[in-house]
Design a protein around this nucleic acid. Sequence first.
DNA 1: CTGAAAGCGCTTACAG
DNA 2: CTGAAAGCGCTTACAG
Lengths: 357, 357
Amino acid sequence: MPATKSAAAAVEHTDASVRPRRTRGGPKGLRITDVAAQAGVSPITVSRVFNNPESVAPQTLERVREVVQKLGYVPNRLAGGLSSAHSRLIAAIVPTIAHSLFSETIQVFSETMSRAGYEVLLALSGYSASNEETLLDAVLSRRPEGVLLTGVAHTDWLRERLRNVGIPVVETWETTETPIDMLVGFSHYEIGAAVAGHFLQRGARHPALISANDERALARRAGFRERLARAGIHNVAEKIVAPPSSVEVGKGALPDLLSRAPDIDAVFCGSDLLAIGALGAARRMGLAVPSRLAICGFGDLEFSAETIPQLTTVRVDGTRIGLNAARFLLDRLNGGRSPDERRVLDVGFTIVARESA
Amino acid sequence: MPATKSAAAAVEHTDASVRPRRTRGGPKGLRITDVAAQAGVSPITVSRVFNNPESVAPQTLERVREVVQKLGYVPNRLAGGLSSAHSRLIAAIVPTIAHSLFSETIQVFSETMSRAGYEVLLALSGYSASNEETLLDAVLSRRPEGVLLTGVAHTDWLRERLRNVGIPVVETWETTETPIDMLVGFSHYEIGAAVAGHFLQRGARHPALISANDERALARRAGFRERLARAGIHNVAEKIVAPPSSVEVGKGALPDLLSRAPDIDAVFCGSDLLAIGALGAARRMGLAVPSRLAICGFGDLEFSAETIPQLTTVRVDGTRIGLNAARFLLDRLNGGRSPDERRVLDVGFTIVARESA
DNA sequence: CTGAAAGCGCTTACAG
DNA sequence: CTGAAAGCGCTTACAG
């Protein structure tokens, strides 16, 4: 009976004659049989202690748990998952978590899934669709039981593959009429339109745009331009920048915009970082913000609205997205909801502007 | 020969007579044998196409890849990992990724590991040691090949368990004389001392502290206080707050501090969020920053130094930590470095203060 | 360059 | 409440 890991190693050596050409795990690693032997029960009972403790007699339970404790046994979920077809793994595919509101979503999502006994496999796709496809396969090879996706702009290939796998999927941070499965998000188009409306209401005549060229930013751009078009404004100066956006990029974009369109009086930036950069550039150029030039960001990285009263921003509750995405998945995983029930939640947004702005 | 997933399901049914009491995976899921049959090779060859393509004849390689493509086969890494004892999984245990510089570290770490063929299992521990222990076991059950840890303040239990498992470990964001294995970080104590030095040099006579009570913040506090003590300042007003820190918490902390110690002329805050909140409170109370009250944060969330020139902050390169942590692990995993080679990297820090401050 | 046999460490589906 | 047998889908270590 192995009482320690080194003793277990000795057992392995003894067994070597029985298993001719394999010492694969090597001397490392306790197995369920080590615990079973030590506790005087079968491996099945040990398995039940972990996965279905109510079905085990109290004394047995306690004895097994003592042995587990003593040996420091940690079940191998690769084996468990393979055998049970339940990996207890959830995949989250996100463009980036650095300097981004997605980090809030992933934070809450991960905490919630973790509490429910799942682990989160994090896949960062950048902003490339091909990357997302590669990552999806890497991630599917772990046989996750659910997937969180960022955005709704996925290739047909990806949508098809995900549908074939048949696991619950939540798309987040965006809306669409045709979700792959479930959805928790808000309309970027409506945000763009709302910011345009806000600018118009403030009396802006020449609104402009600094936007990244990712799908969501471009949806905001569309809403922005179309709302302005309805107001008769068709010439909207714009600067499209490549992600990731940063303060530096924003700082460079504004002068460029102004050189081409000196009379702009409002700028909608694709992110708060861009807006902060634009604000810095405006200061340097002696343009009063917001009186001469209104600047609106996107994201409200908590301190933006708080600390930079000149800026307007759009607040989105990333936390609420993460929480509800987790709930949607868990409801499905726990069998409480049918796969045919397509759930969609629009969490909305808020434009945050100081009175003075 | 199954040519589609539904065809594969039919094969499962046919096999049902051979495998009496099991239909576990159910009709889902292509197996390596499906690909092998279709391509007219053995499963071993298919396995090689994925794991060791150079050892396969070019035509065979192509034929198998075509079938893989056509069927949409994705290998099952639960099975692969179990069989090979290589999970290709790396665990990252971090207190939080929301509003935090850790997100930068995880971003770069994850990208780097992903490029090397590993996936990252993300575990968010909050700031509790017991939570960290629970998470470690959850994570170890996946048999990761390496672990990234935040900080060096772990329980003996955790350090012991990690050592027993024998996989490479990198501790990050801190230094210690006794790392579990490898380390990429910087000295929080030195930062505290350096900020104290900075305040003293500016002529501060009554520096104060607003700090969270997590290990790293307390180390900065120790350095801060001891440097001040060497300058003969022993009464340092302080406000200890519970994580997570936020602008709101900082805004509440400063008035509290001032009510107890009205003559303070400098405050070192545990994070930029706290500093921003303190700045807001100072403004509201009519205290000029930094002339009447200097405020220093920690973290430099990119825009802090950029957009709030009144604040001083401490810049730490989270990106560099993530990159080097990944490199350390990969060097070990690729066998290029011996487990006995204890690698430690101090990435240092920078105090960022405007001339005017 | 390719394959048959055995095994990785669990859990399922029964039976008792 | 407990256990013997079989199998989950791969890969290793040989042999050829």
